[in-house]
Design a protein around this nucleic acid. Structure first.
Lengths: 185, 185
DNA sequence: ATCAGATGACTATTTTATTAAACATCCGAT
DNA sequence: ATCGGATGTTTAATAAAATAGTCATCTGAT
């Protein structure tokens, strides 16, 4: 997520990407060019309202502004074999797409649950949101106080703060592709 | 993404979720309780620096704060048949997981590319980031000036602002589960 | 009932951000 | 070279947010 400190550099970069001068952006946003100059030098910390006003001139939402990856990774393609397995349980495989710790907005996992696999009740309750698609097999998914069996083609989406649990009660392996944001690892 | 205006309500909600009082949060964050009170009433628009200081007391990043879904959907399970197909090209199926327009942090798609399917060169260059896993078949993926053939188990991840194109040159259907954030629809 | 503690809101003052205007630097056209 | 325009920076004045302290209200225990 890059250091949230350097709002200045962030704004400068965004402005440059959109090919705007301080004055042009100031005109569109309805603020003075001086304000933008000072913000970009980190000599002031803008109020949310004025930052929003400035971003409206681009346009860009505040959320986008803060989740923007300023140093995009060069790696975009990933081979199956090079995806690291981050699961602990031997019955579960969790292949992580993309390097960790690169400040990505999303984290994508390619998961395999063997028959009998169970993530356990005391699941980590990380922040953010989480969703996925069942690609093969079936899985019993518990979210909060709700339980459901999902089969190939079905999906789920929930706030990661809800306690959740995955159990494969079937005799067949279950394959899932999931995504969560912001990354919790 | 909810209206970015009501920082006050946002902060109030976050504070309540974490079971903190204004004073307790103020103490942890190193600000005065009065400041938090005024912010929550939207009577001032905090500076980024003070908002960050406050969120540090929770703790929560500014990005998380702004991407937080304040009105989480009740729906968490989705059956295959009820996923809407949002693709235009008849050779491509794009099943969208979760309702649109609900201010989700991630959007997940279950995609099927028939032989000969091509998203075209002039792809939309939406904001945010995007990644996916090839579940079945092979696909030729162009990102910026790079081309690569990916097979089942492989994946990709890139900044959505880069022009991108998916082509199925094979004789087999290609199945992909992808995610992007923030949602562009 | 009443007290003690805790909570959120309010107010005067201090601190900080924003403005308006001037300044310095750079660059292309003549 | 030099003029004109455009860019980013700086400064004094103004507007806005943060603080410290106070007030009003609520709640649980005695």
């Amino acid at each position: 997520m890059s250091n949230p400190e350097d709002i200045g550099q962030r704004l400068l970069l965004v402005r440059k990407i959109y090919g705007l001068t301080q004055r042009e952006l100031a005109r569109r946003a309805g603020v003075t060019n001086g304000a933008i100059s000072l913000i970009e030098q980190n000599r002031v910390s803008p109020s949310i309202s004025s930052l929003k006003k400035i971003l409206d001139g681009i346009p860009m939402s505040i959320a986008e502004f803060f989740t923007l990856d300023l140093v995009p990774s060069d790696e975009v393609f990933f081979q199956d074999y090079e995806l690291p397995d981050i699961a602990i349980d031997p019955k579960i495989t969790m292949k992580l797409l993309g390097r960790r710790s690169k400040g990505r907005a999303i984290q994508i996992l390619h998961e395999y649950y063997e028959p009998g696999a169970d993530t356990g009740e005391a699941m980590l309750r990380h922040n953010g949101e989480e969703g996925g698609v069942i690609v093969r097999g079936t899985i019993q998914l518990t979210i909060g106080d709700r339980i459901q069996n999902l089969s190939a083609g079905d999906g789920y989406y929930f706030n990661s703060q809800l306690p959740h649990r995955f159990v494969n009660n079937s005799e067949e392996i279950c394959e899932i592709v999931s995504a969560n944001s912001p990354p919790s690892f």
